[in-house]
């Protein structure tokens, strides 16, 4: 298998996934480096948006890849590698949430801190592309509102919304990742979107 592909961009095609898995199971360091290159950013993005906190996301991300490393021998291709890794990530997020102290910290302080930091970063990023600073500021504020609204969603709805709207997973993939029927995915997505729409509709409209 040629591992010399762009590690930061592409996801492996289904045909080559089996050989990647075989190399991972054989303990190839190159294969693990490739896996990290391909999946670390999407998984971090997923965890960060669901937890709403980058520093906690970093901890969870490490746990996720440790679990991936340990569990790869038991992966038999029942689902895609991506779905399997996302499922581990969701499971770790769930484990992470169980600590009452972490939950308390997340709800009180960290999200505000995260929002401002993200907003500033986003502002800086977009300032280079856009001439009008007012538009940049307005966009940053809108994103801040969206992130707050997303963070306020109950976790079961938030996970589905993030997987669908941000990670662009299909209903079937979301069902596999969360281990729920597709019908439940649809209903949770409907309710999650409706909650967001009610909260943001007037502001964004």
């Amino acid at each position: 298998m040629d591992l010399a592909v762009d590690r930061t961009q592409s996801l492996p095609a289904v045909a080559s996934e089996a050989s990647l898995v075989a190399e991972l199971q054989a303990g190839s360091e190159d294969a693990f480096a490739y896996l990290l290159g391909v999946y670390q950013n999407p998984v971090f993005n997923l965890i960060s948006h669901i937890l709403g906190n980058d520093s906690e996301a970093a901890d969870v991300l490490q746990e996720v890849f440790v679990k991936v490393f340990k569990g790869i021998r038991h992966f038999h291709g029942q689902s895609s590698l991506k779905t399997w890794i996302y499922r581990i990530a969701l499971h770790e997020i769930s484990n992470h949430r169980r600590g009452w102290l972490r939950r308390r910290l997340r709800e009180t302080a960290s999200f505000d801190h995260e929002s401002h930091e993200e907003t500033a970063a986003s502002w800086r990023e977009q300032a280079g592309r856009t001439a009008n600073p007012y538009q940049v500021l307005e966009q940053a504020e809108r994103q801040d509102l969206v992130k707050r609204a997303l963070a306020d969603l109950p976790p079961v709805f938030r996970a589905v919304v993030v997987l669908r709207e941000i990670e662009d997973l299909s209903y079937r993939e979301i069902a596999e990742v969360l281990g729920i029927p597709e019908g439940t995915v649809k209903s949770r997505l409907l309710r999650g979107r409706e909650m967001l729409r009610r909260r943001l509709g007037s502001i964004l409209g």
């Binding site: 670390q40 950013n41 971090f44 993005n45 960060s48 948006h49 980058d54 996301a57 970093a58 991300l61 993200e118 970063a121 986003s122 990023e125 966009q139 809108r142 994103q143 969206v146 992130k147 997303l150 919304v161 709207e165 941000i166 967001l196 943001l200 964004l204």
Partner: peptide, 10 residues
């Protein structure tokens, strides 16, 4: 707006 949210990078 959700799709416009910045993608978090490690």
């Amino acid at each position: 707006e959700l799709k416009l949210l910045p993608h978090r990078r490690v």
